[in-house]
């Protein structure tokens, strides 16, 4: 039972949100609530922080009551792993952008995604990566004058 409660997504989400709500409340009480010229910076966060705490606890408690009746649906773990892997690659490509620049890191991201996440051939992956990166470079900075993050190489 306890394991099932701890693994339940609503309980988990409610717990995280309640913690966030408490953090907001703690911060808000450090700032002025009502000052010389009217409500201070702590005024509004106090109220929505309180609302987050109350609603997230409500979510958790409501879920606990229903938990006996409903069993949680199965989670598509391979799918979730795929999605999180894609996200990690995307985040990594953003992280290296200050050094490699948009064009290079985007080409690398595309290559890896097409080759391994989508299981396409090496040639297709390379072609897509180069094609998209060049396309972005021609369209945005060259034709439309929209800047892209530049790396140490100057583009």
């Amino acid at each position: 039972m306890i394991q099932r409660v701890a693994r339940d997504s609503d309980v988990l989400a409610g717990g995280v949100l309640a913690a966030l709500g408490v953090y907001i409340l703690v911060q808000a009480t450090r700032w002025e609530y009502m000052g010389f010229d009217g409500p201070g910076p702590g005024f509004f966060p106090f109220w929505y922080g309180l609302a987050i705490v109350i609603l997230s606890l409500w979510l958790v408690v409501g879920r606990l009551f229903r938990l006996r009746r409903e069993s949680p649906g199965a989670v598509d773990w391979p799918g979730v792993r795929r999605a999180l892997g894609t996200w990690a690659l995307f985040a990594l490509s953003v992280a290296v952008m200050p050094w490699l620049g948009f064009v290079l890191s985007f080409a690398l991201l595309t290559f890896v995604l097409v080759r391994w996440q989508f299981g396409q051939g090496l040639k297709t992956a390379a072609f897509t990566a180069v094609g998209l990166a060049v396309g972005f470079y021609v369209l945005f900075p060259l034709a439309l004058d929209v800047p892209l993050p530049a790396g140490r190489l100057g583009f």
Partner: peptide, 8 residues
């Protein structure tokens, strides 16, 4: 922002 393209 550097302005090139049709603004030159």
């Amino acid at each position: 922002m550097k302005r090139r393209g049709f603004l030159v």
